[in-house]
Every structure is written in C-alpha cells, then in structure tokens.
Design a protein around this nucleic acid. Sequence first.
DNA 1: GCCAACGTTGGC
DNA 2: GCCAACGTTGGC
Length: 137
Amino acid sequence: MAFWLFKSEPSTWSWEDQLAKGDVGEEWDGIRNYQARNHMRTMKIGDKGFFYHSQKDKEIVGIVEVCAEVHPDSTTDDERWECVDIKAVAPLNAPVTLAQVKAEPRLADMVLANNTRLSVQPVTPAEWDIILELSGG
DNA sequence: GCCAACGTTGGC
DNA sequence: GCCAACGTTGGC
C-alpha cells in the first residue's frame, strides 16, 4: 500500500465537504497537472492519503482512502485528465501545520515542504509515521 | 496583496 | 525544438 497527500483549498473543497460525503467518497477532479495525474494513475484502492488545507490553514487535517482507481475526470471532455475517488477515513487527532513539517528535520525532504505547487504528492511510509506522531498518535 | 516558483502555450 | 510570455498556485 502506498501513501499520498491531497492538497485542496478549503473554500473550493474542504475536509468538512469530504467528511459529508462519507463512505461514498468523491472524485478528486479538477487536476490539470501531469505530475499530479501520473501519481493518481499509480494509485490502488485502499491506498491512504493525507488531506491538506492550502492557503489559509496550511495544515494536514485528515486521512483519506482511495475508493476508486483512475478514471476520466467528469469535469472535462479533455481525455488527458483523469482522477481517482477518495473517501474520508478519520480526522487527525490534531492538525499538523506546514510550519511543523518544515521545523521537523526528519521531514526536510518531504514534497510538501519543497514543492508547494504540486497538488497530489507521494508520501513515504517514514513520513507518514512522523506526521501521525506529530498529530499526537 | 505580492511575488516566487513552476507549468503550459505558442511564435519562430 | 527552443524559449519567451503568460497564467496559476500557494506561501508569506
């Protein structure tokens, strides 16, 4: 199983919106970036991801799970763009802020701290555990 | 609100 | 195929 991080601006699609969808989940649509799409192409059902609020909050707020593998993005006719579906699993005990991530030496190489614009990112198992640790376990 | 980083587009 | 111009994202 692989780990990922999904970035969203809360005014567009928030963790609360995601939670409201329950186990049905929701298309992670609107991605118009090849790197992000390529990551989604490699995702499998059951992969876990962090849900990150960009812009105002800048913090990881919850855990999601891939519940449908890659398929065409329903928000466009352009066949280049595909996406997966994700569903909320649980909120973090406490949100982990970008500042916390940047202050943690073991997370110095995390994509979140280095490539601010990539909206779908891979997370290593080690990084996953450290984030959970920072959130209070 | 500004600006840096980065990706995409389009002219040549 | 290169590269300048432009648009978008997201941190500060």
